[in-house]
Design a protein around this nucleic acid. Sequence first.
RNA 1: GCGCUCGUAGCUCAGUGGAUAGAGCCCCCGCCUUCUAAGCGGGUUGUCGUUGGUUCGAAUCCAACCGAGCGCGCCA
Length: 588
Amino acid sequence: MISERLAGVVERAINKATEEGKLGPLKNCPFPVSVERPRLPEHGDLAVGIALKLAGQAKMPPIKIAEVIADYIEKDEQAGAKNIERLAVAPPGFINFHLSTGWLEESLSEVHNKAEKFGALNIGEGRRVLVEYVSANPTGDLHIGHGRGAVYGSCLSNLFSFVGFAVEQEFYVNDAGVQIQQLGYCAWALYQRLQGRDVPYPEEGYPEDSLKHFLEPLVKEYGSSFLELDAEEGAKKLGELTKMTIMESQRKLLSRLGVNFNTWFSETSLHTSDAVTSVLKEFEKKQKSYESEGALWLKAKELGDERDRVLRKSTGVTTYLAADAAYHLDKYKRGFDQLVTIWGADHHGQVPGLKASVKALDLDAEKLEIILTQIVNLNREGQMVRMSKRAGTVVTLEEVMDEVGVDATRYYLAESNPQNPINFDLELAKRTSRENPAFYIQYAHARCCAILRKATEEQVNQESGATEKPVLSAEQLSEYLSEFKKKPDCFRAAFDPGHEVFQHQKALVQKLDSFPDEVREAAVTRLPGRMARYAYDVANDLQKFYEVSRVITDDLSVTKARLGLILATKQVLANALSLIGVSAPERM
RNA sequence: GCGCUCGUAGCUCAGUGGAUAGAGCCCCCGCCUUCUAAGCGGGUUGUCGUUGGUUCGAAUCCAACCGAGCGCGCCA
């Protein structure tokens, strides 16, 4: 990566300059040098604004600092080998680098060498992170909002894993408490009604239509064998069976969406294992709880919450918070270095309570990161598609996936940042044109594959109908592939420096080269959506390149070099798409 | 009322302390005898919600206000 190498050169210059006392009181470079790509071509290929950032500590005007650094870079003999053609200092204190094509060649060679590992980093250094997400109640179908959490969590997990963390993904199953009881009543009533018994359906329960399709297969399988049961036993039995059916359907659907969990953690298990009662004891022991009006309260207010929270109601039943505290204590005990919990934004009111409970247990609250995902609005032809669960008109995740496909579903849910609401346009997601970024990116990948096929497969002449032998033989191709890794200068023929088209050629390679930086940025900001937008940019740059630079030509060295460039582009597109879990098709 | 999130082009959204604030869509004009035109090029578009403050420098940080969404239970 050129920017990394360049950052090293700049940092060395700064350290040398500070050693010789040329940068005021500064001892060495206090923060990492970041290299950016200037917007305007006259500002060079790459630039650093470090002098602006050092101004305060060095107590010197930025422009002076830039001049000093530039001076040291020019004196650095190794710097010449970094493909720096010339550099310029520009106000208010930027150092602009103009580079030779050598760095483009090295970048391409690096992509070929690292292949599917290109862009992978080791920020995580093997540290263990647990990502908990979706965690829906097993009381109905998943809707598009769950889909967003699912896609976000899975993309973030992919990203963590790509930057060197050992990732585990977990689904917390809220299979305890009143909602499951409620499910039991509904299931029991529905079971009887489906067999002709005229019993009332619980008015306050889950909509009948939202459960019917889960009960029908149960009726098919068990027939009337449970009709004998009394109301209590019936609700328990049917509730349990329905819960299992729903969980299995959720698991299957998520798997189809490319979302797979290492563990499904049952809330019930926290109750049966006494984890909940023991966490309450722990609060008591640490004097972080007290009894009042017959209930047990967590002293949340002194730990950053706006008020204290109930852990055990006066009825003796523990609250959701108590179970969540026990659950998170369990996560800590499992020894993770980082815990990421993804919730729908409608649960943001619970964040201070959970944080307080973690602090009350003297656990490191810094390790626990709670990320909230905002709502998804479904659109069709500009009309809002309502998602009212009560009215029974809920649009399920499955319906969306059936309609627009898995790739488009994933792309649109992955693309935007979690703190912003999504407007998911069902019609746009189905479109096969440039307007639809999901399609456009895949088309770019398929186009790369088409060029490779064209170069290496037999072609049928349109006029004569005769079969023509491929431009490149299999032997030539494999020979080239190994040259791409070992001889960066074989890419030189891909470029036309000085020519108008060179800007497109350079832009594409620069974009490919910046992938590792983009990955780092996406990982540290927890915004995998950046990968989606990056892939779009690559696709766009590829199309521009394609338009002006013919790959298969009469000149074998040009064909070879450009084919190498196309294959590098295909690789980077595939890597970026794989991080967001969207497929990279060979043809379309 | 309090809290959280958000407010950037007609629309959908990037950009979160640095150069003249970007991209796509929409609209207009060009480009197919050549590897996928399902494409490409060019053009038009801004009180960065408002007002103050911090800073050499603010869309970005701080405060107040305006607007939108969500949340404020011994529900889960």
